[in-house]
Amino acid sequence: MELRHLQYFVTVAETGGFGRAARTLHVSQSAISEQIRDLEAEIGVMLFDRGQRQIRLTVEGELFLEGARETLHTASEAVEKVRRAKRGEEGRLTIGFFVGGNGRYFPALIRAFRKRYPRVKVALVEMTPTQQWQALGNAVIDFGFTRPNMGSLVEGVKTEILFKERLYVAMLKDHKLADRKEIPIALLRDERFVLSERVTSSSLYDRVLKLCAQAGYSPNIGATASVSSGVLSLVEAGEGISVVAAGSRFLALNELSFVPLQGAEAYVDLVMAWPIRRTSGPLKAFLELARTFRNAT
Rank of each mutant, 00 (worst) to 15 (best):
S196Q: 15
A252E: 12
I221W: 14
V259Y: 09
N220R: 14
V227D: 13
P260T: 10
Y217H: 10
I221A: 04
Q214H: 09
E191K: 11
K210M: 06
A245K: 01
A237F: 08
I183T: 12
L256N: 10
R249L: 09
K210C: 00
A246P: 01
P184V: 02
A237D: 13
V235M: 12
A223N: 08
R249Q: 13
I221D: 07
T200V: 12
S201H: 05
L204C: 12
S228R: 03
G238H: 13
G222H: 07
N254C: 05
S202H: 08
R189I: 02
N254Q: 11
V243N: 04
A245W: 00
V243E: 00
A213E: 07
V244N: 06
V259E: 09
Q214L: 09
A246I: 07
R249A: 09
F250L: 15
A252Y: 08
L187P: 00
L253H: 14
L261W: 08
C212E: 11
S233P: 00
T200W: 01
A223L: 03
E182G: 01
I183C: 06
F258D: 07
G222K: 04
V244G: 05
P184L: 02
I185A: 11
I241Q: 04
G230S: 04
S203Y: 12
G240Y: 08
R192W: 05
R249H: 07
V243D: 12
S226R: 09
V194Y: 01
